[in-house]
Each structure stands twice: as C-alpha cells, then as structure tokens.
C-alpha cells in the first residue's frame, strides 16, 4: 500500500513537473518535488520500498527526460544506495539533516547525470551552468522542509492504517481454540 500510494504520488509529481511547472518563469527555476521524494524514500522508508520507488521513478523519468534510456534508473538507484548507507550508518534522519542532505544529493545527482551523459556522447559535451544549478538548489532549499513534512505525514498515516488493520486481523480469530 505504501509503495502504491507513493508511486501514484510520484506519477502525479512527474505530470506536474513536465506539464505545469515548466510554465513558471525561467529565472525562478523549477521546483523538483520528485527528487525530494526520492531522497525521502531513501532515508525514511524501508529499504525495499525505497529501492523499488527509486528504480520505478528512474524508469519513468527516462521516458520524459533526455535522449538516453537507462540513465535515470542507474543514477537514482546509485543515489538511493549512497543515501541509504549514510542514513543507516551515520543516522542522518533528523530534520536538521534534511536540507543539506537533499542539496548535496541534488548536486551529486546533477554531476552524475552530467558525467554519464558526457561519457555516452563525448562529441556532444554538455555545458555546465552554475547559475541554473544554484537556482535549482535554492528552490530545493525552499521546498525541502514542507515537502518532507508532507511526505512524512502521508507515510505515518499509511503505516498507522496498516498497523490498525493488522491488529484488527489478529483480534478477529478465536485465540482460545
């Protein structure tokens, strides 16, 4: 249920990011709520849930972005593994870690995409634009905390619902038979 709900949410975010948010003026940058969701999935969800979501979002993003198929799943899964290791070993799950972790992840992902795309087509070098990257980082810094709060509340609600349902199932049988 958690995976399906977040998958639906991610799909809606992809639709918004590809059809509605590009209408914002270019100088304002474009918010990237899906990226925040992937970071959230890596540090707050169960390992298998986060891995499945990172992979599926990567596969979906491949359809709507860039000429190379397979680029986003690889980058998103690597990001997931690194973040998961950091979250488990260094306990970077507190609210104070959210913004720096998201910004660093974004910078690493952007650099990773840049690197992979440059390796795949060495005759078509991508122009690195610090202005655009910094603008995106600024937008992420603004939106990370509210988005994390929203995803967290959704996850808590789903987990509580699951617990309630499983407790009801346990009580339903005749335990004295």
């Amino acid at each position: 249920m958690v995976i399906i709900t977040f998958l639906l949410l991610g799909t809606i975010l992809i639709v918004l990011q590809t059809s509605l948010l590009p209408l914002l003026p270019h100088w304002l940058g474009t918010p990237d709520p899906l990226f925040v969701l992937i970071v959230f999935a890596a540090i707050r969800m169960e390992t298998y849930q986060g891995a499945v979501l990172a992979l599926i979002f990567g596969l979906l993003f491949d359809i709507f972005s860039g000429p190379y198929l397979g680029l986003y799943p690889v980058v998103f899964v690597i990001l997931f593994v690194v973040l998961r290791l950091l979250a488990v070993n260094l306990l970077l799950t507190e609210a104070v870690h959210q913004v720096p972790l998201t910004l660093l992840s974004y910078l690493a992902t952007t650099a990773g995409l840049y690197l992979f795309a440059s390796l795949l087509a060495p005759d078509a070098p991508l122009p690195w634009s610090w202005r655009d990257v910094l603008l995106q980082l600024f937008m992420l810094a603004v939106f990370t905390i509210p988005l994390f709060a929203f995803y967290e509340s959704l996850l808590v609600r789903l987990v509580q619902r699951k617990k309630r349902r499983s407790s009801l199932q346990v009580q339903a049988g005749n335990r004295f038979r």
Binding site: L21, D32, G66
Partner: peptide, 14 residues
Amino acid sequence: IVGKDPSLWFKTVI
C-alpha cells in the same frame, strides 16, 4: 506539446 523535459541537461518535449 503536452510535456516538457524538467531536467537541466536535456531538451526534449512530449
């Protein structure tokens, strides 16, 4: 055009 590439590095549309 119903969709635009949201990434920084690529320019595609749907």
